[in-house]
Design a protein around this nucleic acid. Structure first.
Length: 294
DNA sequence: GTCCAGGACCTAG
DNA sequence: CTAGGTCATGGA
């Protein structure tokens, strides 16, 4: 049986797709040749950019591409976002270093589950864990030429898995957190869809009821899945960015740093955070190597 | 071998 | 309230 492919094109402006897909907010994208392949919901998709046009290919018929344009947030006016940032040297450097870096709008459950896995793990390890979870617990999806891919597992499926099965996906101590969260969702103790109507503070408090979800992971989910662009996740990299770029001499307490982060960056603080995160993670190590080698 | 990774949680002071 | 230990696992 011959497999069919379905194609669409979209104009792209101010959008670095490769950097965005691999910037540590989503964990299922693989660079393949001149494009990226991944799974959104229960669709396999290949994306590739040519001359300011996005070419998308899937293996299931599509009558409405909203699932893709929404995921990629193609309608966001990036210059307007950058224009809302405070005008300071660190952000000028960060936005210059990676033009076109964007925030995605991901599935709420997948994002929550992925970031429960993320604690004290490197991005490559998170990708490994997510891939294992999908292979072992996700629904099969038919890709191009009969290849098999997997959707992200439902919380019903993960709630039914044993802790040992989850640990076999290299989750370590995070296994019981993921299982506990899945079970709370099955029991409807928290409804992810209902958080859309809540204020950011209330939604954050609801997310932090899940085991393994503290302030940082809650903010990641608010930012990457709920579009709360004022959410400002502070991980070890962002902490390093704040300390070295904004307070190189002083050594503020972490409480004061958090207060600075929560009040300084404005309505699109989450975007600023993503630029700072990517900047210190990619540029600062280079500067170190130069110093060491030269 | 050592340090560290998109932390959370528990305990002790 | 803050500080420190613990939890797994693998990359650099």
């Amino acid at each position: 049986m011959e497999s069919s492919e379905f194609h669409a094109e979209f104009p792209l402006r101010d959008y670095d797709l490769a950097t965005t897909l691999t910037s540590g907010q989503a964990f299922r994208w693989k660079q393949m040749g001149d494009g990226h392949e991944g799974v959104i919901g229960n669709r396999w998709v290949r994306l590739h950019v040519q001359e300011n046009r996005l070419h998308a290919t899937t293996t299931a018929p599509v009558d409405d591409w909203g699932w893709l344009t929404d995921y990629l947030q193609l309608a966001v006016d990036l210059p307007a976002v950058l224009g809302s940032f405070p005008d300071d040297a660190p952000l000028r450097a960060a936005t210059t270093a990676c033009p076109g870096l964007r925030l995605l709008r991901q599935d709420q459950w997948e994002c929550l589950a992925s970031f429960i896995l993320s604690s004290t793990k490197q991005i490559v390890q998170i990708q490994q864990c997510v891939a294992l979870l999908c292979e072992r617990f996700g629904e099969a999806i038919i890709g191009p030429e009969g290849t098999t891919h997997f959707a992200f597992p439902t919380y019903h499926r993960l709630a039914a898995a044993s802790e040992a099965e989850l640990r076999a996906c290299k989750l370590g101590f995070r296994a019981k957190y993921l299982r506990g969260t899945a079970q709370m969702l099955v029991a409807r103790e928290v409804e992810l869809a209902a958080l859309v109507q809540q204020t950011t503070d209330n939604a954050r408090a609801s997310l932090m009821r899940f085991p393994g979800v503290g302030r940082k992971i809650a903010d990641c989910v608010l930012l990457f899945a709920y579009g709360r662009q004022d959410a400002f996740p502070v991980d070890v990299w962002v902490l390093k960015a704040l300390r070295t770029l904004y307070f190189p001499k002083r050594q503020p307490t972490s409480k004061r740093l958090m207060h600075f982060a929560a009040t300084y960056f404005g309505p699109n603080a989450g975007y600023a955070q993503q630029y700072l995160f990517h900047y210190v993670r990619t540029q600062v190590p280079k500067l170190r190597k130069r110093k060491k080698g030269g």
